[in-house]
């Protein structure tokens, strides 16, 4: 079953001196449980594609379906709620709420979802346990290493029980060991929990572990490889 489908997705930035075609006629299907890396040189449209799929930006033309729901043209207030319930985000620079502890950060998404309070803490602790941070539950981000912060971000992304997780260059700021740890966790979650993961990355370590690699050049898909791993 396809979680994400796009049809003729294009994005042109007209506010620049010369119009730039960031995405050109992208047709894409991501099936449930896939571990996909979107690769390409800088400016190839990776982040733009992720922003479109995450409902953070609207395409100039084309359609995006998440399951059977079309999110292109969806009103912003509905889109915010849709994102909250269907999409998990992991950002390159972690983007954790600096004033909350790890467990509060993970619980925060559930709070926004009006998740039952009595089950919230238990689930937040489980998620932190899954990313190997059970002992850091009450620590604020600035006291965690980059790798640990990104793992909190993964736990946060999973807290809403999303249909898929978008990760924009998640290992870009991490050292090798932290990057491997993070990838191991994400692979395990993908395999054991059947979580759909979609990365944009330059990082060969991520590319090597992906089961599907989509290559973008100048906003177009030039290669779509599937690997058995």
């Amino acid at each position: 079953m396809n979680v994400i489908r796009t049809f003729g997705l294009s994005k042109t930035y007209n506010h620049l001196v010369v119009p730039v075609n960031a995405l050109v006629n992208v047709n894409l299907e991501i099936a449930e449980g896939e571990f996909t890396a979107i690769v390409g040189p800088s400016g190839s449209g990776k982040t733009t594609l992720l922003n479109m799929l995450g409902g953070l930006d609207q395409p100039t033309s084309g359609q995006i379906f998440i399951d059977d729901t079309e999110i292109t043209g969806m009103k912003e207030s509905r889109l915010i709620d849709f994102r909250l319930r269907n999409i998990g985000f992991v950002f390159q620079s972690y983007n954790l709420i600096p004033v909350l502890t790890a467990i509060e950060i993970v619980s925060f998404i559930m709070l926004l979802q009006n998740y039952p309070k009595d089950k919230m803490e238990k689930r937040a602790r489980e998620l932190l346990d899954q990313v190997g941070l059970a002992d850091k539950a009450d620590v604020r981000p600035q006291k965690l290493s980059g790798g640990q912060q990104q793992r909190v971000a993964v736990a946060r992304a999973l807290a809403s029980n999303p249909r898929f997780v978008l990760a924009d260059e998640p290992t870009a700021n991490l050292d090798t060991q932290s990057a491997f740890n993070l990838l191991d966790i994400m692979l395990r979650l993908n395999r054991e929990e059947n979580i759909t993961l979609l990365f944009s990355t330059h990082d060969q370590r991520v590319i090597d572990r992906a089961r599907r690699v989509i290559t973008l050049v100048d906003g177009s898909i030039v290669e779509d490889q599937h690997f058995e791993k």
Binding site: G54, I80, D81, R83, L84, F89, N95, I97, I109, S160
Partner: peptide, 14 residues
């Protein structure tokens, strides 16, 4: 600003 945008991205209502 980035933090606010991040919170909005995650689904926090404006």
């Amino acid at each position: 600003t980035s933090e606010f945008a991040m919170l909005l991205s995650l689904g926090m209502k404006r």
